[in-house]
Each structure stands twice: as structure tokens, then as C-alpha cells.
Design a protein around this nucleic acid. Structure first.
Lengths: 321, 321
DNA sequence: CCCCATTAGGTCAGATTGTGTCCTAGTGGT
DNA sequence: ACCACTAGGACACAATCTGACCTAATGGGG
């Protein structure tokens, strides 16, 4: 029964985050202090920028409402697991520019996630569909979070890499940025042994671990990491152009296609077209097209046409006679 | 420069959650207190159950590691937005038993999410694909979070409902539980006007708002809400049985099919079968099957066979001549 | 209309706690 | 061997926190 003020404030914060009203009396009971002190604590929270709304009159109470700053989120076990699983599942196909923040948040969460919960997360993770489907390239979320931590903490990173042709190598790098394009992740890093900048496909990385050694941030020759990645991919011709025409209004298609895949340009009132480039696998794009749920025609590339034809044949076979 | 201890502790917690090492000197600088006090603060955090790991020796420092309890998560703006968007996108198709926690977490987060961030979330949300695809039934995440709050806070909930045949009605309910089956959400609640228990499809609910009146929790006639929902659905025959055979080992199929859809039972070493029931739309199930990426045959129901055939035909047409 | 439960906030005395400045020990890497 | 860092004890002084008491104001229900 040590009357530890900061601990009590955290506890109060956690109670107030429950979406319900708390009368002062109940709070003072739970926290083991007088009612006056509860009022003072609430004042303190308000001064910290976390507005507590109070309903007056009988049956009134306190509740935490939206302010100008994010208060520290107090999560229970299940909620923490839900967020971790959700972020892991979503890491591959989130909205442009958001995936990096998403991975950062995941890294932050997993850094402090109790081990028993971590087990639950990986179990559930296994049960969920890896949405990098149709493609052999599955990324272990651990790999991503370890990398994100190394980037944020400016720690050197050692890992095994499998090149495009399959030859393995060991790399010692100074990780600069984690970039995602579509559903694929890349690490832009300075390769210490080769003394030059490189981009690494994260799904070809194995056993990453931070060496612990800190490094001084280095200037990327091309200012922006995304820009650097784009040039590097273009140079290696890893991306391909595609062109698809839909027999549906542009708005309807836009609502069903992730924005980073491309924006549909209207051809007329009832049809539209997407011309864009994707870095991912063709199989994956095919499923995405099937989801749009309207008639469409694939123009480019021949490879994509072939895969669509194949899926069509497979579905027809599946329907039997 | 008020030397407010609790505020400083929160700030320390937020600094330590950054995935990097913090030497004591830097912390004392940032927090504006002496080095000794920083050590004491860290002691306090440890006593609260948030283990702070310290690397000794030169170039050492502090960092927050996994303990037995979840520390309050201190998120920056982007991370908060990323989590909100991720949870919203994932709310529809998460793992069994997890979606409710997921919605709870979302409700908790949105309760305190600053309004400027809220705007960003809805903008990004619009850009992301609503994954209740193929089905007209789109659920506004706000509806879910409002309902989750009402369930948690035991507040009566008023909303407009559109019955299966389209007839509208206004309901005053005591919300009991939010249940998700597959990609569809149901509210199990006591309908005050009709003086009986009802299940409501969340996508048919409009303009929910808590009346503010608290209610005493009521006993559900059938102990479990999920059980009650199942019976209610069965009685109305909203669920359908399906049976699909895959030409792939059970493990491979299991890895690509969400667990709540059903568990594949092996037929022999190279094939397996799923017999289960789904409450969702057939269109959606078809896309799910297309994702499995192996030969398969649909046995039941005829409706599903028909849709598979149709998608097959559509894809074949899309591939052109 | 009055009554009640609630939030809001002032004041005061006394106990408790937090803080900075000393100090010494131990550890790991260069 | 040295340095940079964590770990923690002792002490004096200041700052803070707490509970008890008080009064105001507000909203709902009978």
C-alpha cells in the first residue's frame, strides 16, 4: 500500500481509457486514495494535455476524450495481441507511406510485448493468411521489426542474403531506410564490406541481427531513399508495366483497388483503364484483379495474360461438370 | 520548467520506447534533471513492472525490454494513424476470437485520437480497399467502435435498422456482445421495445448512438453470445454449408486459409477437404479459394459452384484471345 | 419545486517524498 | 590500465503530496 503517486497516475490513465464513465467515488476506491486526491490527479492529467471530460450532476463521472496529444495507450493482453497481429498482417499491403509508420509501431510494440503474448501472436499469425500470397516471398515479421529497430537505433546490422540467382552471402550493413513498394519490402543500406550503397529485398534476408555497434548516419548519394530504390529497381528491371481495362466506372474500380497499384483513368462512363507498374509477383496481381468483381481485359504484359488465363481455367475445372 | 515528477516519468517512458539505447547523460539532459534522479526514475519504472535493461560498460545505456506487463504505449502521430488504419482494415477478416479484441483496441484508440489525426485516418481509410469485397455490405468502422464502447460501458444504444426485406425500424437496445463470423459482424443485444433478445447485422445498422443511460447487465438465455448467434442464424438459415476438395497437402492449404473458415482434413498425402459452414457472401468465399493457388474442386453448395464457374469464365474472357 | 449525487475548487497542517551533491563499487570495451 | 558507463548508499533541504474540512455549481428525478 505504498502511495506511489506516479504509479497511481498511470493506473488512473488506464482506468479512464476504458470506454465508460467513472464516478469519482469509484476511482478513489480503486486507487486507494481520498476523493480530493482523485480530483487533483485528474487536474494533473489535464495539465499534461490529456483532457478528461466530466459529466456533472448525479450519475456523472469522468472519461478521457480526444485532446491534442496522444496519451500513452494502456492496452490489456488481448488488445496488444490484436494490434500486433493486425499490424503484422497489414504490413504487406497497407497504404502508401503508412507501412513504414506501421512497422515502426510494430517494432515499438514488440520491443515491450511480454513473452507469453509473443507466443500467442506467432500462433495466431500462423493461422492468418499470409497476404503475400501466390508468391513464394514470405517475410517474417520479426525480420521487419528487427530491421526497423536497427534503422531507428542506428545500429549495424548483420544478415545472410540470397541474391537473385540464389548465391548466398553474408552482409554487414549500416541500415538507412526501410521502404515498401506494393507488397514488397526493401532495405536501403550501406554495405560496409563492399563500401557502397545497396538495396536488399527483405524476403531474401535471413537471420538479421544488430551487432550492437552504433554508426554515424551517412549521406545517401541520391537524397531520397525511395528515389534511390526506384532507380536501382529500374536499373535491374525488376518492375514490370501492366495495363488492364475494366468494364466499370473509374470510381467503382478505384474503390476496390489499392491506391498504390495505380489510379484508374476513365475511358468513358462505363469503363476505365489502369496503366501502371508493379514490383510484385504476377500471381498476386491476378488475385487482386479477381477481387474487383467486374468484367475486365488484360492487355499487358503477356505474362499477366497467361496467369489470368490459367486461373480462369483452374476455376472452370474446379466448378466441375 | 516545472519539475513535475509524473510528467517526467511519462516522458522517460516515451523516450525508452524508442528502439535505441539511451545513455544516462542524454536522458538527464533531455529531462532536465540530474543524473542521479534519472537513475531513481528508472528504478521506479522497474518497480512498476516495466523492466529497463541497462548495458554496462562504455557506450552502454538504457532501453525498455519485454516484461510481464504491457507498459503504456507512447505513440507518435504517424504510428497512431498506422495502427488505426491497420485495425480498421483488419477488422473484417482477422482471426477468430481476435476481432473483438481488435475492435476494443480500436475503440480505445479512437476515443483518445486527436481530431486532426482522425481526419487523416479517414482519408487513408478511403484509399485502402474495403476488404468486405464482392459484397455490398460495407461496415463503417465508426459504427463498430461506437458499438464496442456501448458494450463495454453498458450504455443503451439507439440505432436505425434495415431488416432483411428492407423494412426500416428504430431500435433501442441494451448491447450485450459484438460477434464476428467470417467477415460479417453481429450485435447480440436485448431489444428494449420488443422485450426480447435479438441479433443485428452490423452492416444493416445506421446512425448508432449511445443514449447515455446505463443499464444492468442481463443474462442471455443461452449462456454464450456466439452460441446464441449460431442458433439464431441457423434458425433463419443465413449460413450455408460448403465442401471443397484441394489437390494439395492439408498443411499447405491450412497455411493459406483463415482458420475460422474451417480446418482442412487430409484425404491422402496429396489432397485434403474442407467441410464447414460460412455466414458470409458466396462471392467472397470464391476469391478466398482463388488465393489458395492449387487445384481444387467445389462440391457444395450449388450456388458456390455456380459462382466459381462464373469467375472462371470471367477470367478466361479477361485473358482475351 | 426541492433534494440528492455529483464535479469543482479553496485552504491548511503535517507527513511524505523528491532532489542534488557527495561518495564508492562494479563492469565491459579499447 | 584507463575510461565511460551503470548501480546504489547517505544526507540535508526543499518541494510536494495528502487528507480533512469547507463552499459553489450543476443536472436529474421524484
Amino acid at each position: 500500500m505504498t502511495t506511489d503517486t506516479p504509479a497511481r497516475l498511470l493506473q488512473l490513465l488506464s482506468l479512464l481509457q476504458t470506454p465508460r464513465e467513472w464516478p469519482g467515488g469509484e476511482l478513489s476506491d480503486r486507487l486507494g486514495v481520498s476523493r480530493r486526491t482523485v480530483r487533483r490527479d485528474i487536474d494533473r492529467l489535464r495539465e499534461l494535455g490529456y483532457p478528461v471530460q466530466a459529466t456533472k450532476g448525479s450519475d456523472g463521472g469522468y472519461r478521457l476524450v480526444a485532446g491534442k496529444a496522444m496519451p500513452p495507450l494502456v492496452l490489456d493482453d488481448e488488445e496488444a495481441v490484436a494490434i500486433a497481429v493486425g499490424l503484422r498482417a497489414g504490413a504487406g499491403h497497407a497504404v502508401e507511406g503508412l507501412d513504414e509508420a506501421s512497422v515502426r509501431a510494430l517494432a515499438k510494440l514488440e520491443q515491450v510485448l511480454p513473452s507469453r503474448l509473443r507466443r500467442r501472436v506467432s500462433t495466431l499469425q500462423a493461422a492468418t493468411t499470409p497476404l503475400t500470397s501466390g508468391d513464394g516471398a514470405v517475410i517474417a515479421p520479426e525480420t521487419l521489426t528487427v530491421m526497423a529497430s536497427a534503422v531507428a537505433g542506428q545500429e549495424r546490422l548483420r544478415f545472410a542474403y540470397r541474391a537473385k540467382d540464389g548465391t548466398p552471402s553474408k552482409r554487414l550493413t549500416e541500415p538507412h531506410r526501410l521502404v515498401s513498394t506494393g507488397h514488397r519490402w526493401y532495405l536501403v543500406a550501406y554495405d560496409v564490406d563492399r563500401a557502397d550503397w545497396r538495396t536488399f529485398r527483405v524476403d531474401r534476408v535471413a537471420d538479421p541481427f544488430p551487432t550492437g555497434a552504433r554508426f554515424a548516419p551517412r549521406e545517401l548519394p541520391t537524397g531520397d531513399a525511395a528515389e534511390y530504390l526506384r532507380r536501382s529497381m529500374h536499373a535491374r528491371q525488376e518492375a514490370y508495366e501492366f495495363e488492364v481495362t475494366f468494364a466499370a466506372p473509374a470510381e467503382r474500380v478505384a474503390a476496390r483497388v489499392p491506391a498504390w497499384l495505380g489510379t484508374p483513368e476513365p475511358l468513358d462512363e462505363h469503363s476505365c483503364r489502369i496503366r501502371s507498374s508493379a514490383g510484385g509477383s504476377v500471381e498476386w496481381l491476378v488475385v487482386r484483379l479477381a477481387m474487383v468483381d467486374c468484367e475486365f481485359t488484360v492487355q499487358e504484359p503477356p505474362e499477366l495474360v497467361e496467369h489470368v488465363r490459367e486461373l480462369g481455367a483452374r476455376m472452370t475445372r474446379a466448378a466441375g461438370t
